[in-house]
């Protein structure tokens, strides 16, 4: 039996504890097996919300992405210069509208 090490209990405590515990079976909802669908439902919900978050994120990114025609010409020059200094073998095609 467990060591008591100075801890006391009221007289008759464990008898009353047993009675209260036994009544759990009467008072608790009847136990029934959880079906497969109910078991996986939370995981399906997580997966669905993850997919929804990815789709929403993609949608937002597509809507807010800056198209090439919106990039000012001077920024294109800057990129081209930086690219050339970073990688001498990079081939940069300058658009016809940009002055060399």
């Amino acid at each position: 039996m467990a060591k008591r090490c100075g801890i006391q209990t009221p007289d008759g405590y464990f008898d009353s504890l047993q009675s209260r515990l036994v009544s759990i079976a009467d008072e608790a909802p009847s136990v029934r097996k959880v079906g497969f669908v109910r078991k996986v439902a939370p995981y399906l919900a997580y997966a669905a919300s993850l997919v929804a978050a990815v789709m929403l994120g993609s949608f937002i990114l597509r809507k807010t992405a800056v198209s090439d025609s919106e990039i000012p010409a001077w920024e294109e020059n800057l990129v081209a210069e930086v690219l050339m200094s970073a990688d001498p073998y990079a081939i940069v095609f300058e658009p016809e509208s940009v002055n060399p």
Binding site: A2, R4, T9, F14, Q18, L21, V22, I24, A25
Partner: peptide
């Protein structure tokens, strides 16, 4: 059945489990 098994568990283990619980939570 489930009820009988549960009652058996209560009868055999309730006191021992209470003492273990007591050690963890330090309060009657």
């Amino acid at each position: 059945n489930a009820n009988e098994l549960f009652n058996k568990i209560v009868k055999e283990y309730s006191e021992r489990i209470w003492w273990t619980a007591r050690r963890f939570v330090n309060s009657h």
